[in-house]
Design a binder for these strands. Structure first.
Length: 429
RNA sequence: GGAGAGGUGGCUGAGUGGCCGAAAGCACCGGUUUGCUAAAUCGGCGUACGAGUUACAUCGUACCGGGGGUUCGAAUCCCCCCCUCUCCGCCA
């Protein structure tokens, strides 16, 4: 979320930003709520001040009558404080709720458009392959090569669940190993994170697990607990340092974590119903960085560079999208997506999203209360957080199968994965 | 899951109703001194919010794991919860 004081001092800019991002937000109400909160805070402090005075004087007071009067006053002050406290709490909750509806500010270079069509291609790498035979989509390949079992997934768990099988299963492990290996070489600390997290952590990252509209909830919640299945390791990695003050000398902290990701895909029923493109559970290796405000912009480019390196290593053609304002979501200040070429997608192949990297500046850190402090300097500031996909296994797997299929129905395994799979090629069994 | 011990500032650790935002030490920052290093010595040294200042200073309020309660007054007493450690049980 944004800082209430920032909103107050930059009304027009915040207003314009909400418009660009296509988010209806009531800025005026935020300021009004903040006014109310400040006033109550002032009120309570005045009472508390008197309360402290009185209780300090009481032990010194010799006259019993005076003393009784002061005790009575103290008692009354205590009751007043209790009353105002309730109001303060309510005011703070209202303000926080209103504030969390306002999206982050936007990088000046991000394309401005309320329509996803405004997304801008900024990099193109590799040439989509021309097939001299009718290319299959990954569903057909998974079927003929027995790499995934969608019926079993549907039967055991439900629609949009799957079993990976044979080289399909091995390729998941291979992709994870490959991505982790690249990241460790880049100096990132590897993690395997919990697949469940508390509701507050989800909210801090920008998810809305308690959205009153069940049709909009993107995450699964565990009944009888305050836990959710995570939708990405961004949640757990970002939550790691909540309520911490990090020494600036230790920044940036670069992490890479593997987790399973669970998504209800609410709002996308009937979309991409076949295959691995849109599923309720997948495995993902995610990068996450905590850094100072000065560092975040350069690190964002680094995350994109690493994502490109991983896809270049796989040899899959892609392009990079600079996401437009209307498509940024709440927390991102700027976002780059890699869309990989997927020959089986659409009629003649399409680019499909495989990674996403966001600079969230201090938007998540404020909610999660993650600050940093320089040695010998007074005060703290909120850190900047960034995240990026190293590998989302199902989509990478899809792209590999479709791009590297051969006339005879086999699939060539990318060289970087061969050591982990133990073979060069997947052949019809 | 059961039993016990414990959670105080960056760390160690004192503090069992007012003189405690909190002793002392370490670490850190600044000064002095010694030819350098080291040592000695003096001072400073939490965070948030609010008031205030050009900026400092300064003042107020809150915070001793979290939440509630008792009291004029709580780090200190009471209740609930969380976490850590040790032992036992269970388990991959």
């Amino acid at each position: 979320m944004l800082d209430a004081a920032f909103v107050r001092n930059n009304l027009q800019a915040v207003q314009a930003n909400c418009q660009n991002r296509n988010v209806p937000a009531d800025i005026v109400r935020v300021v009004a709520l903040d006014d109310g909160r400040r006033e109550l805070l002032g009120k309570i402090q005045t009472i508390q001040q008197r309360q402290n005075e009185v209780s300090k004087l009481i032990p010194k007071e010799k006259d019993p009558g005076q003393k009784q009067a002061m005790i009575a006053e103290g008692k009354s002050l205590r009751e007043q404080v209790a009353l105002v406290e309730v109001q303060v709490r309510e005011a703070e909750a209202n303000l926080k709720a209103a504030l969390s509806l306002i999206p982050n500010m936007t990088h000046p270079d991000a394309p401005v458009s309320s329509d996803p069509a405004g997304n801008k291609e900024v990099i193109r790498w590799g040439e989509p392959r021309q097939f001299d035979f009718p290319a299959k989509d990954h569903v057909a390949l998974c079927d003929s090569l027995q790499l995934a079992d969608f019926e079993a997934g549907a039967s055991v768990t439900g629609q949009k669940f799957y079993f990976l099988k044979n080289e399909g299963a091995l390729l998941e492990l291979a992709l994870v190993q490959y991505a982790m290996g690249v990241l460790v070489k880049e100096g990132y600390t590897p993690f395997i994170t919990p697949d469940l997290a508390r509701v507050e952590v989800l909210e801090g990252i920008g998810f809305i697990p308690r959205d009153p509209d069940p049709e909009k909830r993107q995450v699964y919640t565990i009944e009888g607990t305050d836990l959710c299945l995570v939708a990405t390791a961004e949640i757990t990695l970002g939550g790691m340092h909540r309520d911490h003050i990090l020494d600036e000398a230790t920044l940036p902290r670069k992490y890479v974590g593997m987790s399973h990701c669970f998504r209800t895909e609410a709002g996308a029923p009937g979309r991409d119903t076949r295959g691995l493109y849109r599923v309720h559970q997948f495995t993902k290796v995610e990068m996450f960085v905590f850094c100072t405000p000065e560092q975040s912009e350069a690190i964002h480019l680094e995350l994109l560079r690493i994502e490109e390196k991983i896809f270049q290593g796989l040899g899959i053609p892609y392009h990079v999208i600079d996401t437009c304002t209307g498509d940024l979501g709440g927390p991102a200040y700027r976002k780059f997506d890699i869309e990989a070429w997927m020959p089986g997608r659409g009629k003649e192949g399409e680019y499909g999203e495989v990674t996403s990297t966001s600079n969230c500046t201090d938007y998540q850190a404020r909610r999660l209360n993650i600050r940093c402090k320089a040695q010998g300097q007074k005060g703290t500031r909120f850190v900047h957080t960034l995240n990026g996909t190293a590998v989302a296994v199902t989509r990478a797997l899809l792209a590999i199968l479709e791009n590297f299929q051969e006339t005879d129905g086999s699939v060539t395994i990318p060289e970087v994965l061969r050591p982990f799979v133990g073979k060069d090629r997947i052949v019809t069994r």
